Amino acid sequence: MNIYEALKNIRWDYSEYFKYKFGIRYDQTKPPKSQEDFLRLVGKKTMNTYIQWERTKEYKDLVALYLQSRVANDLAEVYDKVSTKAKQTADEKNIKLMLTLHKEINEHAKQAFLQFKDVEEEEDDGLEL
């Protein structure tokens, strides 16, 4: 499950708060919401409800999913830089780091494959044609 799927499974206003807090916007041409804009959107006067929600397991699980997606993006950026440097300099340290990143990326790919495989199996209704 990714952060977008998880946000669909929680209360609407909590989902909006999470997107507001972490700057998750589908339309990147629009500026981020201010606190006043957010409160107007959800029809609240204070942030107290959401500050209390931040102490829950549900919120912490969402944060973990969000950070997991950020790590994947960071890994791609780091790999591009290390790969370029290793190819240009042929430095032993950079080559070892690139190979370590290869292993890490392959491990992530295996986990992603298993996740998508599980999703495909769940969608199979067992009917045969």
Results as ranks from 00 to 15, higher is better:
K57D: 15
K57L: 13
Y59V: 09
Y59L: 09
V63W: 02
V63H: 01
V63I: 10
V63T: 02
A64T: 08
A64S: 10
A64Q: 05
L65T: 02
Y66K: 08
Y66M: 08
L67P: 00
L67S: 04
S69W: 02
R70G: 07
A72P: 00
D74H: 10
D74L: 15
A76H: 08
A76I: 12
E77D: 14
V78L: 15
Y79R: 15
Y79C: 04
D80I: 09
D80N: 12
K81H: 12
K81D: 08
V82M: 06
S83M: 11
T84K: 15
A86H: 06
A86G: 05
A86M: 07
Q88S: 11
T89I: 02
T89H: 02
A90E: 13
A90S: 09
A90Y: 05
D91C: 11
K93T: 13
N94F: 15
I95H: 02
L97T: 09
L99C: 03
L99D: 04
L101M: 11
L101G: 01
L101D: 01
H102E: 07
H102Q: 05
K103G: 03
E104V: 10
N106L: 06
N106H: 05
H108W: 06
H108N: 13
H108P: 00
A112P: 00
F113T: 02
F113I: 07
F113G: 02
F113A: 08
Q115T: 10
K117L: 03
V119L: 07
V119D: 06
E121T: 08
E121N: 12
E121P: 01
E122L: 14
E122N: 13
E123D: 08
E123M: 14
D124Q: 13
D125E: 14
D125R: 15
E128F: 11
